[in-house]
């Protein structure tokens, strides 16, 4: 559908004064004053018990966790088992798996808008009980189809780590 309006922009005008009517009763009719308010902050965030996963990516290893008690294996790691409450051990995940489901994002949060369109997918691994959220690279976003489900994919790692989960991404095997 074509848009029939000019896109909104967020730049306002600097305004230092606004006139008041003589009759204060007329202030009920005053249009709302809208100002722009900037907010920015840096957090000091610890990955805490999830840290080994990110250290693994920096070493081209995809680490999950396995419960020492019930053997439940997590593709997205957690230090304690959701099934039995036991402590989990770090284990290497297979670096090859299959697309369990996916989407192509044509829009996104502001932080990711410039990266659109991108393919977001959940990957399943043999012998692993849960899935892993990642980006898939090397497929044509315009050619999305349900046939992508089940496609064999393998992990690739960024050479220079950013210590974010996007240090790993998946590509179809054979590309």
């Amino acid at each position: 559908m074509s848009e029939s309006r000019v896109p909104e922009e967020e730049e306002g005008t600097v305004l230092f004064k606004v006139p008041l009517p003589k009759d204060l009763g007329a202030l009920r009719e005053l249009a709302p004053l809208i100002i722009k308010h900037h907010y920015e902050i840096d957090y000091i965030h610890s990955y805490a018990q999830d840290s080994p996963f990110f250290a693994g990516l920096a070493n081209k290893r995809l680490l999950g966790t396995r419960c020492g008690n019930c053997n439940y294996t997590y593709a997205t790691p957690r230090a304690h088992c959701m099934e039995c409450g036991g402590p989990c051990d770090w284990v290497d995940l297979p670096q090859e798996g299959q697309i369990h489901t996916f989407t192509v994002c044509y829009y996104g949060s502001e932080a990711f808008l410039k990266e659109t369109p991108f393919i977001l997918a959940l990957i399943e691994f043999p012998g692993v009980d849960t899935l892993f959220l990642t980006r898939v690279v090397g497929l044509d976003p315009q050619a999305s189809s349900l046939d992508w489900i089940g496609m064999a994919v393998k992990a690739k790692f960024r050479r220079l780590s950013t210590f974010r989960p996007t240090d790993v991404y998946f590509v179809p095997i054979g590309t």
């Binding site: 990955y47 999830d50 997205t76 989407t103 994002c105 829009y107 996104g108 949060s109 932080a111 990711f112 990266e115 991108f118 977001l120 959220l133 990642t134 980006r135 974010r164 989960p165 996007t166």
Partner: peptide, 12 residues
């Protein structure tokens, strides 16, 4: 840690 940075977008 694991979801938002990959493409944090509920519609996705």
């Amino acid at each position: 840690n694991f979801d938002y940075p990959v493409g944090g977008f509920y519609s996705g």
